[in-house]
């Protein structure tokens, strides 16, 4: 019995050795690949940490200009005048810190706003906005239907209620909107 036991152990060791020798090269390759990946992971983590530190230390970006791209059936004069009026509304954006801007409120500045031009009402629709140092609004203009009002906006009751309908008073309203936005962080949601 002990002899058989000894043979059994010897067989186990011999079999283990054979299998091990058969797979040793692959095991070795796996080991070195793992080591290589460890090094890469370390380097990537270092790079990430450096990037995060740089990102945290970067100067805050501000809006330096606002561009308005207006499309619609307008003549040159109407387009210029609408650009002027819309520009007055968006002017307080200039100088705002980008991170502190609330995208919904930026959209709500112009979306479905009614502007009056030579007794005719026009409605602005915001197609899209790029919030960047050179902020860009893409707007569609259409004649406003009779009886439409800013209060029917889908953007949100808060935005609609504190933004006045007249462009001349919009500066202070936007300032209020932007300062409120500082306290609220929401994701961009186009209306």
């Amino acid at each position: 019995m002990p002899r058989k036991l000894g043979l059994l152990f010897l067989g186990i060791i011999a079999g283990g050795l054979l299998v091990h020798l058969f797979h040793a090269a692959r095991l070795e390759k796996i080991y070195w690949d793992k080591e290589k990946l460890k090094v890469e992971l370390f380097e990537t983590t270092e790079r990430l940490a450096r990037g995060e530190a740089l990102w945290a230390d970067r100067p805050a970006e501000k809006v330096s200009s606002v561009e308005l791209v207006i499309t619609g059936e307008l003549d040159d004069f109407e387009e210029l005048e609408l650009q002027r009026q819309a520009g007055e509304i968006t002017a307080p954006l200039i100088g705002s810190v980008l991170e502190e801007l609330e995208p919904e409120l930026v959209v709500a500045l112009l979306h479905r706003r009614k502007l009056t031009l030579e007794g005719k009402d026009y409605r602005l629709d915001v197609n899209w906005v790029v919030i960047a140092p050179r902020t860009r609004f893409n707007l569609s203009v259409s004649p406003a239907p009779a009886g439409s009002s800013r209060a029917k906006n889908r953007v949100g009751e808060g935005a609609a209620s504190f933004l006045p309908p007249q462009p001349s008073a919009c500066g202070s309203a936007l300032t209020a909107a932007v300062s409120r936005a500082h306290g609220q962080k929401k994701g961009l949601r186009f209306p």
Partner: peptide, 19 residues
């Protein structure tokens, strides 16, 4: 060498290099 290499493989060490 062979048994040491087997042990190295069981302990997540490079078997051929250890051998």
């Amino acid at each position: 060498s062979l048994l040491g290499s087997l042990g190295a493989a069981l302990l997540n060490r490079p078997p051929l290099k250890t051998m």
